[in-house]
């Protein structure tokens, strides 16, 4: 609001730093204890890389992280496309159809995971569909779509219908109106929907447990079934933090760089 330095500004920065400290405390803790010499999560007894070594020797853990990422990527891609297309369609549908569809859409968000999980398992069992990585992915898509739609719908409501109408009147095909007019306007919402979908899929345990078959186990299933805490999981998480940081930084850096380049070109013209 105002740029002058003030105690108020000092206070607000201090507050944000405290919030960040709170949020990063356990993550730092996990990273620290991934170097712990002992199995304990309470006392740090010395520096060692043994959990990293153990992790890279643990084929089951590496496979589970591989499947987690593959399933999350597929589920995110499919649910983002289906969710975006459905949200645009619904925004133009009759209010009654729209509100019914959106209420149903909310069910997987409202329902406890265990209910969604059991209901999907019942579906697969009664349809005699053998559970596998396919059913697991279907289940993930099912609970990811609602988050995509929830993220896009408010943005669509703010859109001016007339712009798309105008595009159609000016001879654009519906497809062009969609890809050239509507989607660019809601792009940030689609992206945030996709991010939420990915993190939901990445972190899910209960629904995965009931919908996966013998061929696949994701990282949450692996962690939850540990009888004793295996600190290799700390090492794995520390690496995930590093990887996610790199991905997010790149994801934000590239558009920014491109923008700067564009601006430069504009300027030169």
């Amino acid at each position: 609001m105002e740029n002058r330095k003030s105690p108020w500004r000092f206070f607000s920065s201090g507050y944000l730093i405290l919030v960040l400290l709170f949020i990063y405390l356990p993550i730092g803790y996990v990273m620290l204890f991934s170097f712990n010499d002992s199995k304990s999560m309470i006392s740090f007894s010395g520096f060692s890389l043994r959990w990293y070594e153990a992790m890279f020797e643990n084929r089951e853990m590496l496979e589970s992280i591989y499947y987690t990422v593959v399933v999350a990527l597929i589920a995110t891609a499919v649910s983002t496309v289906v969710g975006t297309v459905a949200a645009i369609g619904l925004s133009k549908a009759r209010p009654l159809l729209r509100s019914i569809a959106l209420e149903i859409n909310n069910l997987p968000v409202l329902n406890p995971d265990i209910v969604t999980a059991i209901s999907l398992m019942l579906l697969f069992l009664s349809a005699k569909i053998q559970r596998s990585i396919v059913t697991l992915t279907l289940a993930h898509i099912t609970f990811c779509i609602p988050y995509v739609i929830l993220s896009i719908m408010p943005k669509l409501r703010q859109l001016d219908d007339n712009v798309a109408e105008a595009a159609l009147d000016l001879g654009a095909s519906p497809r062009q109106a969609l890809t050239k007019v509507i989607i660019p306007q809601i792009y940030p919402a689609i992206l945030s929907g996709a991010l939420i979908a990915f993190s939901m899929s990445f972190d899910d345990f209960v629904i995965s447990f009931f919908t996966a078959g013998v061929d696949v186990q994701n990282i949450s299933m692996y962690v939850y079934s540990m009888k004793r805490f295996n600190p290799s999981v700390n090492a794995l998480s520390a690496l995930i933090v590093v990887a996610v940081t790199i991905i997010l930084v790149l994801a934000n850096l590239i558009p920014a760089l491109r923008e700067r380049k564009n601006k430069k070109e504009e300027y030169q013209e």
Binding site: G89, K92, A93, L107, L123, T142, I145, A164
Partner: peptide, 25 residues
């Protein structure tokens, strides 16, 4: 604009199959 409505049909089928049917159970 009506043509856009059709875009939601695959999704409606999806929720009927994977949300409504299991919840009925």
């Amino acid at each position: 604009m009506k043509s856009f409505v059709r875009m939601s049909y695959p999704y409606l089928l999806w929720i009927a199959l994977f949300i409504v049917a299991p919840m009925i159970m």
